[in-house]
């Protein structure tokens, strides 16, 4: 199930900016281990869903997982072979704005080896570099 908001005030949004580091959501808050973004990107709902599937499959329904980011931002795309102008294009999808140091996923209730492998599989679905971190040993 792809993530997207249920209700918004305005459908089409400005692009905004992705500068700087994450100033919230940068600590492991719920689980024991987390996956931290080291680069910035627009992470769309399909990528998040692919990661979720990869993690849950590898954990084989043991443990618990948290998705710490949500695709709040809509993006639009003009149809093919369309001339420029005529207003903003229709909605194409939803993305989460990811800045370096954002925690993307957290897991708990599994061994470190399983958590590491799950996050490795999830990281292969993402367009950015990531880092495995744990609650107790900050610089892993």
């Amino acid at each position: 199930m792809a993530l997207q908001p249920e209700r918004v005030k305005f459908r089409k949004m400005h692009r905004g900016n992705r500068a700087g580091l994450a100033y919230s959501g940068q600590t492991v808050a719920f689980g024991e281990y987390g996956l931290m973004a080291l680069e910035r990107c627009w992470m769309d709902s399909k990528q998040l869903e692919a990661c979720r599937v990869a993690i849950t499959r590898n954990m084989k329904r043991h443990g618990k997982m948290w998705i710490r980011v949500f695709p709040q931002k809509s993006f639009t795309k003009k149809p093919l072979e369309t001339r420029m102008g005529k207003g903003k294009a229709p909605l194409e999808g939803w993305v989460a704005v990811i800045r370096p140091a954002n925690i993307l996923f957290e897991v708990d209730g599994v061994t470190e080896a399983i958590a590491r492998e799950s996050f490795r599989l999830a990281a292969t679905k993402l367009p950015i570099k990531t880092k495995f971190i744990s609650r107790h040993h900050r610089a892993v």
Binding site: M1, A2, Q4, V8, K9, R11, R61, K64, P90, G93
Partner: peptide, 25 residues
């Protein structure tokens, strides 16, 4: 933990809405 049946039920409920299918305030 959540059972497989529960997870598939949740997935079926919100079966892939299109990007534009969003309610506005």
């Amino acid at each position: 933990p959540k059972t497989e049946v529960e997870e598939t039920a949740v997935a079926a409920e919100g079966a892939a809405p299109a990007a534009g299918d969003v309610e506005m305030l």
